[in-house]
Design a binder for these strands. Sequence first.
DNA 1: CGCTGTCTTGAAAGGACTCAACGCCGGTGG
DNA 2: CCACCGGCGTTGAGTCCTTTCAAGACAGCG
Lengths: 241, 241
Amino acid sequence: MANPLIRKLEQHGPLSEEERHVLEQITFRTVIYQPREEIVPEGSSPTHSSLILSGFAIRHNHSPDGKRQITAFHVPGDFADLHSFLLKPLDDGVAALTTCKVANVPHSDLKEITKNYPYLTRVLWLSTLIDGAVHRVWMTTLGRMEARERLAHFLCELRDRLQSVGLMRDDSYDMPITQEQLGDAFGMSTVHVNRVLQELRADDLITSSGKTLIINDLEGLQRQAQYTPDYLHINQKVERD
Amino acid sequence: MANPLIRKLEQHGPLSEEERHVLEQITFRTVIYQPREEIVPEGSSPTHSSLILSGFAIRHNHSPDGKRQITAFHVPGDFADLHSFLLKPLDDGVAALTTCKVANVPHSDLKEITKNYPYLTRVLWLSTLIDGAVHRVWMTTLGRMEARERLAHFLCELRDRLQSVGLMRDDSYDMPITQEQLGDAFGMSTVHVNRVLQELRADDLITSSGKTLIINDLEGLQRQAQYTPDYLHINQKVERD
DNA sequence: CGCTGTCTTGAAAGGACTCAACGCCGGTGG
DNA sequence: CCACCGGCGTTGAGTCCTTTCAAGACAGCG
């Protein structure tokens, strides 16, 4: 199977043989994490960044009084904490949702890339900018949409992101996320997540059994969520010269 | 007066004479915007990024049904849409809150920097990462804190950011932000913003008359907001070699 | 002086939360 | 093979934070 990082970055434009070689070199060190295990502790200053090769992970912030906000869900191919390259100590932590295979990319290697591979640098920079764009949309759903729209919006987002890495099956995908975690991500109590999901099921927009989510009415779901996928910038091109 | 961009980036480490010269060169083209004027339209694909030299500006997203989310307030020295360098079309727009003097930095110049000035590249990259860190904290306040804490938190944040660019006077600062805008930023109705501010005034945490905000009890405000300034990464250093 | 944008206030309605309890299911151990 | 257990999903009822709607006060500006 192709290297997930190369695959990810090539959506933004073709890579040279040399660039691919560099990316191969920096992603060979892998580690396995178990579900619930902490991949990068909140507030730490890691010396490498974690690329998710397989499995689901989250990023989260805790407020001083212990409340948790999940700031991102990560799927295979995502660089969960690329920002820790320059941003230390990290304000958020990364944790495994399922068993995760992770490549540790040393920050020293990233620094070398900024010195010798300007195009790769821009593409990596872009991937952190897309992260920010997703944050802004989440802020918009948190601040200005209702719970039902927020959840629907996320289900649409996850669909498109999984599709872009080949993890969609027809109209369904794996979503190993508990209702408590959805609540922590979208500013809702677990109880309310439960009720909203029931509504979405009752309206025949989705079916969810266990960890599998089936989208019965994609258009309806997108309409209710006012969803437009532009902000994911999938296939956003980066100029080479 | 020193170039605000140079001043901004030097907080992350000293710059060489040559680097300072480059930064001077890319920031000489300035434009004045009037209050309420659009600086960068939402959804556009600008060919330059806007550095705020003086005045206040916001960044905002609109949902399809017209609701607005303000995703950032910008003060002098901020690169309001540095992310538009690589992220096009832009998902958010920039607008002036007050009269703003803005430097237009051509993206072609930024690209040259990524080719020839790796350290500058990393520092600029960092500044977009800090932007993302602030987004995450806002997500946390939006998702997991109450209206009163959210507003208090922002007042603390603004204080520290203005102080870092020398715009604090003792315990007060200019805040040319309407209650409607605060509502659009922190997920509240204008009416509720008004009531919460009244509470903060009644508890003698702040005094606000017109556009001036006075902090009467900084510790109390920070305590209520559960505020810690780490996420702003002021003076975060970037390794040079 | 009148206009417009902003701030303020009151009352009623509603979305979401908390608390508490129960059912379900897969894993573990005897 | 079955009982126990913990994690997760589900329900009901009461409460509260926040919104909406409507209207009036205020202030800066031309």
